[in-house]
Each structure stands twice: as structure tokens, then as C-alpha cells.
Write a protein that binds this DNA or RNA. Sequence first.
RNA 1: GGCCCCGUGGUCAAGCGGUCAAGACAUCGCCCUUUCACGGCGGUAACACGAGUUCGAUUCUCGUCGGGGUCACCA
Length: 478
Amino acid sequence: MKVRTRFAPSPTGYMHIGNLRTALYGYLYAKKQGGSFILRLEDTDSKRYVEDAVQIIYDTLKDAGIRYDEGPDVGGDYGPYIQSERAAIYREYAEKLVELGGAYYCFCDKERLESLKDANGVGRYDKHCLHLSKEEVREKLAAGVPYVIRQNVPAEGSGTYEDLVYGTVTVDFKEIEDGVLLKSDGLPTYNFANVVDDHLMGITHVIRGSEYLSSTPKYNLMYDAFGWERPAYIHLPPIMKNAHEKLSKRNGDASYQDLVDKGYIKEAIINYIALLGWSPKSNQEKMSLAELEENFSLSGLNKSPSIFDEPKLRWLSGEYVREMSDEKFAQLALPFLKRSKAYGKYPDAALLKILKPRVEVLEDIPSKIDFLEEYGKFDAGLYFNKKMKSDAEIAKVVLPAAAETLKGVETYENAALYAALVELAQKLGMKNGQVLWCVRVALTGRENTPGGASEMAELLGKERCLERLAKAQAFLNE
RNA sequence: GGCCCCGUGGUCAAGCGGUCAAGACAUCGCCCUUUCACGGCGGUAACACGAGUUCGAUUCUCGUCGGGGUCACCA
């Protein structure tokens, strides 16, 4: 049988990392098995609907490269793919389930329901309306009494199923309440809609978060009552922010879009989240989407929660930066380059060249090159470097001589500048590092820069170099 | 609290009765070097605890502890 998986988000906001990973795994499994991946929108709770959420879901999936074969905006043979457009279908099946004995009409009002709960708000529905006669039900229905349809869960026994990652899961039916399947507004609850849709849409593998682990037996009860084949279940452990909290937008944790906005490379984000909860057979961790599709397997799924580790994402992002073409880098880096004070004052190509080997997350770009436009009094202690054997005293000797040397260089090009400075070191009887370190510090006022003395000199150009060298000497003599 | 699930280094994670318990990130050190970064090499660092089962448990069972999830006319 052809594998069909689905991603069924509720349009209540943006896509967080956990959601995206669920979508990714569903996509990867389907692709690996040569099956189809479907997008379905679960919008049966009008109170939680958020305006742009649907568009965000479409955009995020598209942006991440997760293509769905069927969905609201791409069509398919099993539509509609938006639950709010399937109301009639749910009603039909809910009534059918009532006939089959798997559900029943309930006319209890809010007050009665409240009275069933104890001081802690805990208490289950008492199956009161299950005992209504057919006539009573018909009369109330005819009289227009508001109602819901509840699932009829057996009082005895238990439900067991084999989860493909968690193994055997068993829940006693007495732990399960006769939940509402069809709300008084006529729309289904998730508990009912997911079962009807997954069956009608031919979903073979249900991939979702582990929060559904213990409610799955009640869904199975419905599959069984309808005489439908149960799908295979693949529950996924949560992605945590730390040992105790789940990663969530509510806590202000990074969403996919936030990460992209910060300049993490998209491919790295996908690659990284694929690795949170799943591991490949080989030790190769850096993988493109295509490689993930090729290597994905259920056996690599882990059942314990994993903590989102930004440093590792950062590293992976850097790996992607390093391997991308200069053109691609230029394109991605431009918006961030523009945020720097130095933008427009130096050739983009020159900036990009020194940045590419050193950038992991694009938002780091401005801080790496702002020194090109920011130059002021700095601590003379910067001249001290144990390994280079340099300090402020050495600088006092080096700087005037370097100014003289650099004045004599015509074309400000790295190799020529480097040669000139090394020659100067020899002339002064110093180590190359002593001259190079002092000059670089004098030129930039920074301890760390994206490149060495001659590279910085090339970038700054003759005029600025001589100007800064003069200032640096003045600072030193203050 | 009841029920369900989870528990290997700081983090991700391999392992599926016998291993000196992989690998990656992070961290530390060394090398390379024109600082930084890249790259190369190396180090520190883990089976939550206690009982079983077994010739032998990280691996199987039970308990304890710790953590998460779930108990809605939300998904």
C-alpha cells in the first residue's frame, strides 16, 4: 500500500520548530517510501483562529522546501483539505457513529456538567445521556434542545496499540472520558475530525507529537467502531527549550522565521531540526534535504525529548555558509551588510570576501565590519600580545616606521602590503608578528578583526591607513 | 493527584547481553598562521539509583528518584 502521511496544523499562529519538525518527518517518511505527503488545516476552533496563520503555514513549508502533494492550495483527490469546509462530512459520520453505538447524543447543559466536577475541577462525564431512550432523544432533537455528540467509551477494558517509536502503549478505558465529538456549534472537535479525516484521506501513517500518545486508544475505538483499519502511529517526543520547558512561541522562543531573520542558513535549520530526535545510520550529520529524504528511517527516531541547542545550529549554519557559492553568499548577506555602518563605503566584493570564511549567522556581519567606520581612542593594552611579543612600547617604534613604509606603497594590495611590512620587520630587527600585530591594532582599534594587518590595510586604503596610523600614534603619546 | 511516556558526557546522539561505551556541537590544549576565523591533532567529560534475571548487564524485569505529557464543546 502506498504510504500517505499528513501534517495537520491548527492555524493559530506561527510555525514553531516543533511543528516544523513534525512536518519534516512526515514529508521525509513519505518521500523515502515513495508515498504522498498531505497538508490539512485543522481550523475547527473558530475562537483560536489567527488571521495570517494559514499563509504563514504555506509560506514556511514552501520556504523550507517541504512540498506537499495535496493540500488546500494545491488541491488533490481527497479534499477539501480545510476542516471548516468539511462540516457536513463530520456530521454525517458522527450520526453514523451514533447508530453504530460508538457515540450518543448529549443534552446536558453547562450547569449539570459543572456539577459533575469536584473542587479541583476534576470529574468525568457520567454517561447520563447514554441512557436516554430513542424517543427521548428524538423529542429533544425535535424541540431544538442544544446538544453535542459524545463518544461512548467502554467502562471496562483497555486499549492497546503499537506505536512505531514508543512501542506498546496501553490505556485503561476507565481513564478516558466520553469526550465531545461534535460540538454544539455543529463543528467537530479534534478528537473526532482527525479520525474521520485520516481515514477518509487514506492516511497510512499518523505522525504527530507525543501529547497524543495516551489519547490514541480512544481514536482507535472509533476506527474499530466504524470498521476502519487503524493507521500506523508515529509519535514524536517534544523539542525542549531546556530540561523543563517545551520550546514554544508563547515563551518567546525562536520560530523558524525568527531563525531565518537572524540569518541562520535555511538548509542548516532544516538539517539541524531533522537531527533533533532522529539520527542517521552513518555518522554524517550534515545533510541536504535530498540526502535526508534518502536516509530517513523510522528506526533512527528517538523517544526521549531533546533540547534545542543553538550553538550546534550555529555551527551547522557556518558549514553551509562556507560551502555556498560566492554569489549565493552575496545575495544572502546583502541585507545584513546594509545594516553595517561600513556599507557602501567599501566594495561589497571585498567585504564579502573577508566575511564569508568567518560568518556562521548572518546577523553577525555588522559587528564584524563596523570597525571600518568606527575608529576612536582605544586602550594601549591592545598592543600587548604575549605570543607576538608586542606591547605599547614596541608599538611606539613600529607605528612611525610603518606609517613611513605604508606611505611608500603605491598599490594597496594584500601581497604587496604584506611584503612591505615583513621587510620593515627585518629592517627593525623584529619578528614579523610584532610589526603585523601592532599595525593591525593601530589600523582597526580592535583585538580581533576579519583578517590580518595587510588585509585590513588593503580594505581601508592608503588614505585611511595613514590617517589612522597618525591617530594611533597620537593616542599612544597621550 | 490518577493515568501514559521518558531517563547514555554540558547538548544532540550511537549502542539493541560480553565494546577500552562511537560520533557531532560546546569546552580545554597543541599545531598551522598576519590577530580572528578556517583547517589539523589531542584532552576533559556519560550509562540516575537500588534490587533482581543471567556465567555476564548501559542493554531484560521490578521498584525508587527525577523529568515530560495528559486528564476541555483546544488542538
